[in-house]
Design a protein around this nucleic acid. Sequence first.
DNA 1: CGCAGGCCTTCGTCTAACATGAAGGTAAGT
DNA 2: ACTTACCTTCATGTTAGACGAAGGCCTGCG
Lengths: 138, 138
Amino acid sequence: MTYTIHEVAEKLGISTYSIRYYNDHGMLPFVQRDANNNRIFHDTDLEWLNMIVCLRETGMSVKSIKHYQDLIQEGDDTVNERYAMMCAQQEQTLAEIADLKKHLDTINYKVAHYASILENNEPDSFVPSNLRTEAVGK
Amino acid sequence: MTYTIHEVAEKLGISTYSIRYYNDHGMLPFVQRDANNNRIFHDTDLEWLNMIVCLRETGMSVKSIKHYQDLIQEGDDTVNERYAMMCAQQEQTLAEIADLKKHLDTINYKVAHYASILENNEPDSFVPSNLRTEAVGK
DNA sequence: CGCAGGCCTTCGTCTAACATGAAGGTAAGT
DNA sequence: ACTTACCTTCATGTTAGACGAAGGCCTGCG
């Protein structure tokens, strides 16, 4: 089973620009071309791309992903470093989730705040002329 | 209690560049200046900045945050729109947390994969010459 | 008194990770 | 014949800053 660049883009929820970008930057070393020089993607390419998307969305830079790929191609000697990279990514992702949850609390508070205002038809603040009362809400 | 720009930067874990950037872009309309034109920050400014950081880190653009601020200053008529904005932000943040958790699974799998390789001193793949076997691992 | 240090300003350049357009080309489908 | 989909290279725009330089305040220190 093979796919065009547009099919891949849709499947993975990224743009064709990004795919070409990744390809141009050596992060997709295996994509083949057809007789017309069009990229043809196999399922393994999709898996690779999926991993790239995963690492990108968890904050790894394109440069680091490229390095990671290079390590894989260098063979088994680099497993240690790859392990370290994934551990770091794991920690970072856990930290970001924790961060987002904290921010979500703040946002939840705001939502509830506005909801109660709208429900009770209350004014937004006791001193409307003092615009600073809104602030963070807590 | 007042703070210098550097104190604020350290307290909130952002750079002085960012603070000036936000200030220059109308997102901190209340910062006062001392006799030497230095910015002086009050606790309410910190709360505001904290909200800005929260919205930024959950993916809201500077432009939208500015709009949100403008709405607040326009008064109670805009509560509806502000409510909608916070709801959208809430949803988006929930979605991003879910996304990150999914990606975390993939990363966890990788970590476990490498850990087992290192433990058993196994080679990384059965067909070392086929570099594609690494892929996403599952 | 002179100077370092911290703040300010404006100007301008740099970065990442794309997004997008222009211009020009091939090849397949209708 | 023409549209459509893909390709290429080149170039510019975008976002949210990071950062240095130049020039100018003011304060504090020895």
